[in-house]
């Protein structure tokens, strides 16, 4: 993670009390001048209008704002936008689209792993990150790894079904082909 001071403060484009930063979001370079108090979450939602990432508590307690920073999951409400210059940021919009779903998005759809859909972006971003984390194989392991994302609708059983389905499919894909196949 880069430090706050890597963000260049330039008087010309920033204006009084503002700060110019460059961020890479969903593979695209963005250069904007912002209020240095702005969280990464508000930057995504209010400046870039990437509203798929949700605010549920603004205190890192619910997980609705989960995004990936350099491939790792993070609560974007606990990150200052200005502290992430140069970092690679991925949001739900960078994962897939309604016509071209990421396998995790497809599994959430198939397993009805949501109700209202508000926490869903965060659940999916956590679930995708979990695939490359050292998480055990059992449902209980996944429950533990997914407990930073609250679903007040309580779609937890279906969230587990969706994630385990994707993990099984991944293992099948990764398994060596039997001889002669």
């Amino acid at each position: 993670m880069t430090s706050l001071f890597d963000a260049a403060v330039t008087a010309s484009d920033a204006g009084e009390g503002r700060i110019a930063i460059k961020l890479r979001v969903n593979g695209q370079e963005r250069e904007v001048s912002i209020d240095p108090r702005m969280t990464l979450l508000d930057y995504l939602r209010d400046v870039l209008h990437l509203t798929g990432t949700k605010k549920g508590c603004d205190h890192g307690q619910c997980g609705a704002c989960t995004i990936h920073i350099n491939g790792r999951r993070m609560n974007s409400c606990l990150a200052l936008a200005a502290a992430h210059a140069g970092d690679e940021i991925t949001t739900i919009e960078g994962l897939g689209t309604p016509g071209r779903l990421h396998p995790m998005q497809a599994a959430f759809l198939e397993n009805d792993a949501y109700q209202c859909g508000y926490c869903t972006s965060g659940q999916i971003m956590s679930a995708v990150a979990l695939l490359s984390e050292p998480c055990g194989a059992s449902d209980d392991d996944v429950r533990e790894f997914m407990s930073g994302n609250i679903c007040r609708c309580g779609a937890y059983p279906n969230i587990i079904r969706a994630i385990q389905q994707v993990r099984r499919d991944q293992q099948k894909d990764a398994a060596p082909q039997p001889a002669g196949a």
């Binding site: 509203t51 798929g52 919009e93 309604p98 779903l101 759809l109 859909g117």
Partner: peptide
Amino acid sequence: DGPLKVTGTA
């Protein structure tokens, strides 16, 4: 409406 919900476009 699921495709909108799983992609953050709802």
